[in-house]
């Protein structure tokens, strides 16, 4: 765990604004970030360092006069990801509601609850990518789809694989990610959600023994535009005829280029309504 030190001062917002304007030009490399926040009557400036700073040095380079308070403290050893997500409300995406342990009672009647604890893996549903996938998947289920083979590629928390397991009890479901930490978290989330049948493993794209030669009726690929484009031929090849891939993790300005690549790979691509500048595409193999 890297230790950080936080140097704090308080003053009028405009005065601190003047200080930070020149900080980037004069701060040493050990200063990793600054933050300036309004706290009602007064504003607060925090400078974060990865080695213990000398306060006299900080005053000098940041041009902080002696008349202003300046304190330095070791930052607490916190799990920042969990802390930043702990207070977030449950999120609904189509038939599904994603919630943390503190919100177990918050799932509305008729919704399918998925418990995802805040952690370092992507996919807590608090931005448009995961939600877009859950909405597209819900629409598929509403239309009567019932895929028997499902892959959650780049699974993060495995939220999409869990959504599939909760609605497709007979399906064979795999979840893979390039990040071993995400796979560990996926396995834990599967256990917590009563879906232990999901096979979670580390894989780089579709290049893995357990995926070789496999065909899927549904693939979730909630990654990033570039990776989606690189994987397009492999994903198209891994779909059964009539199989679908739900693509997300791309911004509105990237939608056209991703769509073109998947159309070039022989798929018919449908665009879902964007969510906060995030796009979701559903591509079908004819």
């Amino acid at each position: 765990m890297t230790q950080f030190w936080r140097v704090t001062t308080h003053a009028d917002f405009a005065l601190l604004g003047n200080i930070v304007e020149h900080l980037d030009d004069v701060a040493p490399e050990s200063m990793t970030s600054w933050s300036l926040f309004d706290e009602g009557d007064i504003a607060r400036l925090d400078l974060i360092f990865d080695i213990e700073p000398d306060l006299a040095d900080v005053r000098r380079f940041a041009n902080i006069p002696d008349s202003m308070d300046l304190t330095c403290e070791k930052m607490p050893d916190e799990d920042w990801v969990r802390l930043s997500l702990a207070g977030l409300k449950p999120v609904e995406g189509g038939r599904f509601t994603l919630f943390g342990a503190h919100d177990r009672d918050a799932v509305a009647e008729g919704q399918i609850g998925i418990e995802i604890e805040a952690g370092p893996a992507f996919g807590t549903g608090h931005h448009g990518t995961t939600r877009g996938c859950l909405i597209a998947f819900s629409e598929m289920l509403d239309a009567g789809a019932s895929p028997k083979t499902v892959l959650d590629l780049g699974c993060g928390t495995a939220v999409l694989a869990i959504a599939a397991a909760k609605t497709l009890p007979d399906a064979d479901i795999l979840a893979s990610d390039i990040d071993p930490e995400a796979v560990t978290e996926s396995a834990e989330n599967c256990r917590k959600n009563g879906t232990p049948g999901i096979e979670c493993f580390v894989a780089e794209g579709l290049d893995h023994g357990r995926l070789a030669g496999r065909k899927f009726e549904l693939i979730f690929a909630n990654i990033l535009a570039r990776a989606l484009m690189e994987l397009a031929p492999d994903i198209a090849n891994a779909l059964e005829p009539g199989g679908k891939v739900i693509l997300s993790g791309l911004l509105t300005e990237q939608e056209a280029m991703v769509r073109e690549v998947y159309e070039a790979a022989g798929l018919t691509v449908h665009r879902q309504p964007p969510l906060e500048n995030w796009e979701t595409l559903v591509a079908v193999r004819d």
């Binding site: 890297t2 926040f37 990865d50 977030l88």
Partner: peptide, 22 residues
């Protein structure tokens, strides 16, 4: 990614670290 310095800088202010990273 959520490791330092991003985690401490955003986390201390309650910003959704994973959303920012993505």
């Amino acid at each position: 990614n959520p490791s330092p310095p991003i985690g401490p800088a955003l986390g201390q202010r309650g910003v959704n670290i994973m959303e920012f990273c993505k």
